[in-house]
Write a protein that binds this DNA or RNA. Structure first.
Lengths: 407, 407
DNA sequence: ATAGCTTTTGTGGAAATCCACAAAAGCTCG
DNA sequence: CGAGCTTTTGTGGATTTCCACAAAAGCTAT
C-alpha cells in the first residue's frame, strides 16, 4: 500500500504529507540545493534548516561541509537513504537524506531531521517511497524551466555579441525572462581541458547555482568554454570577490568532479548591461594573453591585472604594419647572434624581475656581477639608458611583442 | 682706370686675373663657403686652402674657427677687406679677405693669401675693385640656382606627404633636379621660436650648407619650422651623428645669429626614399610628445629615444574611446581627493625616477621613509603589485596618458 | 700558439635599500 | 576637546646594490 498514491496540488502539500508520516521536519531541495519545498509543522528545526529556508537555498558552508564529509557524493551514487551525524559547527542536527532520481540523473534531495528516537526500518521505507513520489512533482517544475532556458541562452548570446544598444531593452528582456538584474557585473570565461560533456554541464550548473560568493545570473557553454556573467555584491571589492570565486570554482571542479579547467579570466566590472559585450571582449583578451604569456600571467585572471598586456593587440597590429622597429633591440639581437651571447634574454629576464639584480642573477644562474657587466654592455651596445623608465618600457614591450608574434 | 673692365668667360678666368694682379693665390667662395673658383698659378698655398679646393668647400673646423675669431662676423658687417693673422692649428696662413655684396646681402667672399711682404694700400684697392666686379659674375650663378630651388621645394613636399610610391620615381626625380641620393637618411624638424624671416632663412641656408657633419640634401621652411632631410655617412652610428648635428645646429643658430630654436626632432633612419613620409611623421610625433611632456623629453630628439611615448597617439585614441579605465589609478585619485594626499603624484614621480627611492624622495622633498610608507599605502589602496613590471608599466602609461589628455 | 679581446667570477668597501619599530605631528569625528 | 586614526620622520641593522679593480677563463684571428 503506497501512502503517496494520492494527488498533490503542490510540492508544499507533499512535504507536509511526508512530514506527517515521519513525524519530523522535511525539506526538499533540487539538485543544486535550492529550496523546493519544506514542511510547516511545528517541530524542532536545526539552524542549518532555518538558514536554508530563509535564504531559499542551502548555505554554502553547509554544502561545502557535506561534500567534505562525503555525504553528497554518497547521495549522488545511490538511491539509498543516508544518515548524517550532527555537525555542530554548521548548525546541522542529525539528519536523514535521500536523493530523488530520474533515470540516471539526480533531480534533488529530501532531507529529514532525525528527532530524539533513531529511525525504524519502516520510516526509512516511507522515505524511499517519498523520494520516488517526488520525482514526478519535481519533473514538472524542471520542464517549465527548460523551455525558458533556451530563450535565455539566445538572449545571452545577443548580449555577448553586443546586439543591444539600449540598456532599457536589456532590462525589459531580463524581466520577461526572469533574469535578475544586478547593479554590477562582469563577464568571465573558463577554458576547459576538453569539450564539455553533458555530465560536466550538470556539474557546472550545480556549482554555479550553489555558490553564494556571488550571483551568476547568466551562463552558457560553448565547446570548451564556459561563459558566465558574475555579479559581485559590492563594487568596491567586486574584483577581489570575483577573483576568489574563480579560484574556488576551478578548485571545486577539480576536487569534486575531477574536471580540469585550464584557466579562467574575466573582464572589467560594469554597471550598464550594454557593456556585457565589452567585458566579454576583455575576458577573451585575458585568455589570449595568458595563452601567449603563460608564465608571466600564470596568476592573472582579471583584465584589470593584465597590466600592459591590455594594449598588446593594438600595438601588435601597428607593429605588423612595420612601425615600432626598435634599433636598440635589433642591435642586441645582432650582437647575440654574432658573439653567441644572451644579452636579449638577460635584459628580458632583468625586466621580468623588475630590475632586481639578485633575483635576475638567480634566475639566470649567473653571478650578480656578471649580470651587472652584461647590463653595462647592453646599455652600451643598444645605446639604452636603463635608468630611464620610458626607454625600459619601450624595450620591454618590444621584446614581449616579439614573443607575442611567435605565438 | 678699372682693371676689371673686361669680360670674363668664367669665374676661373676671373680668379686667375685677380691672382695675377695681386701676385698671390686667390679663392672665391659663395656665402656658404662653397668653393666657387680659385686661381691656378703656382704660388705657396696654405693647408686650409688645399683642403678647401680638394673638398670644394671650406672645412668646417676652419669655418668654426673663423667664427670664433670674429672674422666672419666682421666680413658680414662691412665691405672692407679684413686681415686675418695666421691660425696654425687649422693650417691657415696670413690672409686677406673681402665680402662680395649685392644690395644688403653678402653673396660670397674673396680670399687672398698674404705672401712674404705685407700688402700695400694699392693692393687693398685692387681687392676692393675685384669684390665689386665679382658681384655680377656670382649673381648669374645664383639666378640659375634659384629657379631650380623652386622645383626642388615642390618635389620635397611631395616626398614629405607620401606622394611617391615607387623608389625608382624618386631617384629619377632626384637625378633630374641634381639632388644627391644618399644610402641612409632621416627627416628632421626644427621648431623655431618665431616665424622664420628671410634673413634667418639665409642664416639657416648658410649653416646647412657649411656643415660637414652630415649631408642635408633637402630642406624647406614652413612658418616656424625648418624641415630637413639629413643623411649620415654611416648607418651604424647614424643616429648619434644626427643627434650631434642637431645640437650643434641649434647651438650655432643661437650663438652666431641669436636665433632661438625651441626644439629639434627627427624620425628613424631609413634606406628607401619612400619612407621619407614615415620619417617625417615620426619627427612630428617627437615634437608633439615633447610639447606634451617637456620635462621628461627635454633631451630627447630622436624617435628612437621617444621610448614608450612612441605609441601614445595610438593608445590615446583607444582611451578616448572609453577603454583602458584603470581601477587602481581611479582608487588612488579618489583617495587623494578625499584625504588631501599626494599618492598619484608620488607614484608618478617614483616611476619617473625609475623606482629610485632616494632620488624620488629628494624630488618630492620628503623623507625616504615617508616615500616607503606612501608606496606601501599605494599598493594597498590600488591593489597594485609595485614589483611587477607589467603592472607598473600599465599604471605609468595610464598616468602619462592622463597628462597627455590635459594638453 | 699567442696576443688581444670579451666574458665571467671574485673581493671589498661605500652607498642605498629594506624593514621593524617608535615617536611625533596632523586630521577627523563624536 | 580628545580618542583614534593616518601620515611623517627618525633610528638602527640586515641585506642589497653599485663600483672599481683584478684574476681567470674563453674566443678570435693572425
Amino acid at each position: 500500500m503506497n501512502p503517496f498514491a494520492t494527488h498533490f496540488d503542490s510540492l508544499e502539500e507533499f512535504a507536509d504529507h511526508v512530514s506527517e508520516l515521519l513525524q519530523c521536519p522535511i525539506t526538499i531541495e533540487d539538485a543544486n540545493h535550492r529550496l523546493i519545498a519544506y514542511s510547516g509543522h511545528e517541530h524542532y528545526t536545526d539552524p542549518a534548516r532555518t538558514a536554508t529556508i530563509i535564504h531559499r537555498r542551502v548555505p554554502e558552508r553547509v554544502i561545502n561541509s557535506l561534500w567534505r564529509e562525503g555525504v553528497i557524493p554518497k547521495l549522488l551514487q545511490s538511491e539509498q537513504p543516508v544518515r548524517v551525524a550532527q555537525i555542530s559547527e554548521i548548525g546541522l542536527g542529525n539528519r536523514i537524506a535521500i536523493s530523488i532520481w530520474k533515470n540516471k540523473e539526480a533531480l534533488g534531495f529530501i532531507w529529514a531531521i532525525e528527532m530524539d528516537e533513531p529511525w525504524t526500518e519502516q520510516q526509512f521505507d516511507v522515505l524511499k517511497q517519498a523520494a520516488k513520489a517526488a520525482k514526478n512533482l519535481l519533473l514538472q517544475a524542471q520542464i517549465r524551466k527548460h523551455k525558458k532556458e533556451e530563450r535565455i541562452q539566445e538572449f545571452f548570446w545577443k548580449l555577448l555579441t553586443g546586439h543591444f544598444s539600449s540598456p532599457h531593452d536589456i532590462v525589459e528582456q531580463c524581466n520577461e525572462l526572469n533574469v535578475h538584474v544586478y547593479p554590477f557585473f562582469a563577464v568571465g570565461i573558463f577554458q576547459f581541458q576538453q569539450h564539455i560533456q553533458t555530465q560536466v554541464e550538470r556539474q557546472i550548473d550545480y556549482l554555479l547555482k550553489t555558490t553564494q560568493q556571488l550571483a551568476v545570473p547568466l551562463y552558457t557553454i560553448d565547446h570548451q568554454r564556459l561563459i558566465v556573467v558574475v555579479a559581485p555584491s559590492s563594487n568596491v571589492y567586486g574584483e577581489a570577490h570575483i577573483e576568489r570565486f574563480f579560484r574556488s570554482f576551478m578548485a571545486q571542479m577539480k576536487e569534486r568532479f575531477r574536471v580540469d579547467i585550464v584557466m579562467g579570466a574575466f573582464g572589467n566590472v560594469y554597471e550598464c548591461y550594454t557593456n556585457i559585450a565589452k567585458s566579454y571582449e576583455e575576458a577573451q583578451t585575458v585568455l589570449k594573453m595568458k595563452r601567449a604569456f603563460p608564465h608571466q600571467l600564470a596568476d592573472v585572471q582579471s583584465y584589470q591585472h593584465l597590466g600592459m598586456y591590455q594594449f598588446f593587440d593594438l600595438l601588435f597590429e601597428k607593429k605588423r604594419h612595420g612601425d615600432f622597429h626598435n634599433a636598440a633591440l635589433n642591435k642586441l639581437k645582432q650582437y647575440d647572434a654574432q658573439h653567441h651571447t644572451n644579452l636579449v634574454e638577460t635584459i628580458e629576464t632583468y625586466l621580468d624581475y623588475d630590475s632586481n639584480v639578485n633575483e635576475t642573477a638567480k634566475a639566470l644562474n649567473i653571478h650578480p656581477n656578471t649580470l651587472a657587466y652584461r647590463l653595462k654592455r647592453i646599455s652600451e651596445i643598444g645605446h639604452i639608458d636603463l635608468s630611464n623608465m620610458s626607454e625600459k618600457v619601450k624595450l620591454y614591450v618590444d621584446m614581449k611583442l616579439d614573443k607575442y608574434r611567435a605565438t
